[in-house]
């Protein structure tokens, strides 16, 4: 039997004892009991897990996420990636001890904060112009190879236009959000109509301000479809590989 690690939390002993005594009523995946392994003021929340070769499904991953979410309401934590198993409590203790400084630094960075996801969609045909008529005519008289090159050029130009639009939007959203003291990480857009894809880390009490800001942007840009998700545990803002 291995140990599945859900999160590393920063907490006083009494709070963790309450958690382990089921006062709070959280269970691990498959209804397994949670336990904790500590080194100084940091704790790894774990449950027993199947051996490494056993298969888990999406429902297990969702349950795992739910445990992390519950914990994030009570503690400052670093969420673990699903599937992080170690052989025993003793091994976990070793890992906590060896990586204590890096863990503490990351915990300080995310203390009192939550992560939010912000994706923006816009019909890409609104942004990318139809190729000019002259070019189309030229294409009709060309060989297959020239048409191929022309198509590639049009695709390139469409990508450039989309990129330019995304960059402008990034700047505009950053200006709107600047008052919230948020850390913004812009990710690659996911393709299709996605024109902005970012994650934000900000103080938990700023949630309403963020919501209002996003509503404000949405009302200025009826052509945009904005999708805000969260609050999440700070999955995108932990910068650590435990050794």
């Amino acid at each position: 039997m291995h140990k599945l690690i859900y999160a590393i939390i920063h907490a006083k002993k009494e709070s963790v004892c309450r958690l382990m005594n089921f006062d709070i009523g959280i269970q691990g995946i498959k209804g397994r009991e949670l336990s904790a392994v500590s080194f100084n003021d940091i704790w790894a929340v774990v449950s027993d897990a199947e051996n490494k070769d056993s298969e888990m499904n999406n429902d297990d991953a969702l349950e795992f996420a739910a445990v992390t979410e519950e914990l994030s309401h009570m503690f400052t934590l670093l969420p673990m990636r699903f599937g992080s198993l170690l052989k025993s409590d003793a091994e976990i203790l070793k890992v906590l001890e060896k990586n204590y400084d890096a863990i503490r630094n990351n915990l300080i960075k995310v203390e009192g904060k939550s992560e939010y996801g912000l994706k923006v969609f816009r019909n890409s045909s609104d942004i990318i112009p139809v190729p000019e008529l002259a070019e189309v005519k030229q294409a009709e008289g060309n060989s297959v190879y020239k048409n191929y090159i022309l198509n590639k050029f049009n695709e390139y130009r469409a990508d450039e236009t989309l990129l330019e639009y995304s960059e402008k939007l990034k700047t505009e959203i950053a200006e709107h959000i600047s008052g919230l003291n948020a850390v913004i990480k812009c990710n690659k857009v996911t393709g299709g109509n996605n024109v902005y894809n970012a994650v934000l880390l900000l103080e938990k009490e700023m949630t309403d301000n963020l919501t209002q800001t996003v509503i404000g942007i949405q009302s200025c840009h009826k052509e945009l479809n904005m999708m805000l998700t969260g609050p999440w545990a700070p999955y995108n803002f932990v910068d650590i590989t435990l050794k």
Binding site: A61, L62, P79, G83, S84, L85, V95, V238
Partner: peptide, 15 residues
Amino acid sequence: RVLTKGVVISGDLVI
């Protein structure tokens, strides 16, 4: 998030 983000243990076992 749970499958691609979060803290990783190098050389950990994977389900």
